[in-house]
Design a protein around this nucleic acid. Structure first.
Length: 413
DNA sequence: ATCTGTTTACTAAGTT
DNA sequence: AACTTAGTAAACAGAT
């Protein structure tokens, strides 16, 4: 078994330089690209020399600026250097990419689409003839990243587990395989990471599972601007006083071990310390103050719905009014957005090629539509399309559910 | 029965 | 080296 695990382990996001994406065709200076697992279609998604943060990246990225990726299969190169500029150069700009680049053709700013096989800046400008389709290569994003992207591209800023799966498989063919494995990981990530919160379904929208959204304070999880690996794990301030952990009952490992489990909430002073997640309970939103037990006692609760919310985000009561339709969470988020713009629209210091900005950014405000979707690598498609194709419930894909929750994209945060 | 969600354990790899 | 973050497996419980 262990062996098995290990094996699997290799499989993961190893595009880090050796393995999956580190193919010869890709810029190789970055890592040891040894053989690697010979995954059939493995190749480099992106190559980002000079990438900050995790120096492990070796990828090719696409020029975020108005490039029409949609039609480029992997390999079509557009200006080679563009990526570099966009990516690397971006770093430190402090602005979001969107601010400096014109919106893409499709109206969104997709930008960095993982165009697998895209020419890497360093590499040559000539497209490689032998380029293969990276369609089934493992995306260079962590599950957390994928989840984050999926949620953020959703008009309602929240998705059910199934929709999440759908989004991922629609965009990344790689995930059409071994579903049990990665889906388990997705579920694990959702439950395990404080940055994801569970939003109960409204009574009138029965179905399986809750909606998953991003914790309002999780805005800069990818501070480093890289979707590959967070610089810092987001931890809700739920520990606030003391006990919640204990309350949760399981405290076991959290206490002190070094394992993942333990790290989850150990830090009392997370950035979000200010936000008492525990209070969210009343809103029906599970900020993981207490895993499990404390779940929304009554998802539907409408009564002092925002009481918590307010607390949570310190928002003024009056704001809630317009949103009566969706008494809870949504508003919550919305309000939060107002109150804590920085959290919702934080601006990463830099635009990492794999940054949220690049991936999801959308310059225009008010866009509720998903920003970028990859209908296959290097082929961004509108969220609507994806939704349509994936059969997502329009009810929320279109923000009916939470219309206006985010009048502006969070990203760029 | 299947899906969803939580938790534990372990491993690998990146970071400090 | 110690810590942190992430991926995987698996057991389990609850919901549909």
């Amino acid at each position: 078994m262990l062996s098995a695990v290990k094996m699997e382990g290799h499989e993961h996001a190893d595009w880090s330089g050796s393995g999956y994406y580190g193919e010869t065709e890709c810029y190789t200076s970055a890592g040891n690209m040894n053989s690697g697992l010979s995954m059939n279609s493995m190749s480099s998604y992106i190559s980002a020399p000079g990438m900050t943060g995790t120096g492990h990246m070796n990828a090719h990225y696409v020029n975020p600026v108005g490039v029409n990726h949609s039609s480029m299969p992997a390999g079509v190169s557009q200006s080679p250097g563009s990526m570099v500029q966009a990516g690397v150069g971006m770093t430190g700009l402090g602005g979001s990419m969107s601010s400096m680049s014109p919106p893409p053709p499709y109206g969104s700013v997709p930008v960095m689409s993982p165009v697998y096989g895209q020419a890497c800046g360093i590499r040559s400008r000539e497209p490689k003839p032998y380029r293969r389709s990276y369609t089934h290569a493992k995306p260079p994003y962590s599950y957390i990243s994928l989840i984050t992207m999926a949620i953020q591209q959703a008009g309602s800023k929240m998705l059910t587990l199934n929709e999440l799966y759908q989004w991922i498989t629609d965009l990344f063919p790689f995930y059409r395989q071994n579903q049990q494995r990665w889906q388990n990981s997705i579920r694990h990530s959702l439950s395990f990471n404080d940055c994801f919160i569970k939003v109960p379904r409204l009574p009138d929208k029965p179905g399986k599972g809750s909606f998953w959204a991003l914790h309002p304070d999780s805005g800069n999880m990818f501070e480093n601007g890289c979707y590959l690996r967070r610089q810092k794990r987001f931890k809700s301030g739920r520990m606030s006083g003391a006990g919640e952990k204990e309350a949760a009952g399981k405290s076991g490992s959290e206490g002190g071990s070094v394992t993942t489990t333990s790290t989850r909430s150990d830090s009392p002073h997370s950035s979000s310390a200010s936000s008492p997640s525990s209070e969210a309970k009343g809103t029906g939103v599970d900020l993981k103050a207490h895993r499990g037990e404390l779940l929304p006692s009554s998802p539907v609760r409408v009564p002092s719905p925002l009481a918590h919310t307010q607390h949570l985000f310190s928002q003024p009561p009056h704001h809630h009014q317009h949103h009566h339709q969706h008494p809870h969470h949504p508003l919550l988020l919305h309000e939060a957005a107002h109150l804590k713009p920085d959290h919702y629209h934080p601006h990463y210091s830099f635009n990492h090629p794999f940054s949220i900005n690049n991936l999801m950014s959308e310059p225009q405000h008010h866009r509720l539509e998903p920003v970028v979707q990859y209908g296959g690598y290097g082929c961004p498609v509108s969220g609507a399309l994806v939704a349509a194709k994936s059969g997502l419930d329009p009810a929320h894909t279109d923000s009916n559910y939470y219309r206006g929750v985010y009048s502006r994209p969070i990203m760029n945060s």
